[in-house]
Simulated assay, not measured.
Amino acid sequence: MDSKQLLEGDLIRVERKNLTGINYWHWGVYIGDGNVIHFSGPPDSNISLKEKHLAEVRQVTIKQFLGDDTEFQSVPFLTELSRAEVVERAKSQVGRPFRDSSYELPYNNCEHFARWCHGKAESKQVQNAVLWAAIGSVIALGAGILFGASVSYAKRNTERDHENI
């Protein structure tokens, strides 16, 4: 997407890779004139456990927001708030930690901030990760039950075969 197509208040995201090599989306709010407001660590940092306390809402150029990336996505504008209200909400947080709290991936991250500017602080990528972890746990539990049942069945058949000899 070309930044010239952006409108004030647009939610934008860029794909990044964390320190463990896992891809994630970094979120911000486009405020016009080539600027973005986002919740992040210091410039040129990837928030680590040691740097969480340094995270704050920052206003940067779109180029700074993108970092080494050139591609980004604009997420559909789904809010009852006007674009001006979204921008005002974003600007009201600049220079301080979002919700006056440190960066916490599950409940206070860049997506929470960007979506809060649109009316509701939430992180769909965290919600999806939790959902997939739950599905994986159910599958693992089911596989464990099936394995246990098959071992038990095989053991009973072996014992029965020994009784018949």
Rank of each mutant, 00 (worst) to 15 (best):
N109E: 12
V75K: 10
F39S: 00
L131I: 13
H118W: 02
N35D: 09
V36H: 05
L54P: 11
W132A: 05
K63C: 10
G136P: 01
T70R: 12
H53D: 15
V60F: 03
Q125W: 15
K4N: 06
E122C: 11
V57K: 04
H26N: 06
V138P: 05
A154M: 11
L105H: 13
K124H: 09
P43Q: 00
H118E: 08
A129W: 02
L81F: 12
G67I: 01
L78N: 15
R58E: 10
A134C: 13
N35W: 01
M1P: 05
L146F: 12
Q64Y: 02
Q127P: 07
S82H: 01
Y153R: 02
R13C: 13
E56C: 09
A154S: 08
Q59L: 09
A154K: 09
F72A: 03
D161E: 12
S123Y: 01
I62S: 02
T158M: 10
N109I: 05
V57W: 04
F147A: 12
K63N: 13
T158S: 10
I145F: 12
H26F: 04
G144P: 02
I12W: 03
E56K: 07
T70I: 07
Y30Q: 01
L49Y: 13
V60M: 08
V138Q: 03
G28Q: 04
S45W: 05
F39E: 00
L19Y: 14
V87P: 03
T61S: 15
I31A: 08
N108Y: 05
Y103F: 10
R83L: 03
K120I: 14
R156V: 06
A129C: 07
R83Q: 06
D33K: 07
N157H: 14
L78Y: 15
G41E: 09
H38F: 07
A134M: 10
V151L: 12
E88G: 11
E56G: 05
S152A: 14
A129D: 02
I37G: 07
N23D: 12
G136W: 06
L6P: 00
I145T: 13
L105D: 00
G21S: 05
G9I: 06
Y153I: 11
D33Y: 05
R156P: 00
V126N: 00
V86L: 03
N164I: 00
F39K: 05
I22W: 14
G136Q: 03
R89E: 15
L6W: 06
H162W: 15
E71T: 10
F113C: 01
A121I: 04
E104C: 10
A140H: 06
H26T: 01
L81A: 09
Q73Y: 14
G119I: 01
E163T: 15
R16K: 15
S82I: 04
V57M: 03
V60P: 00
F72D: 00
L66E: 00
W132V: 09
W27T: 07
S123P: 06
H162N: 07
N35Q: 11
T79P: 13
L49M: 12
N157F: 15
A140L: 14
S92F: 02
L49H: 12
R58F: 09
G21C: 05
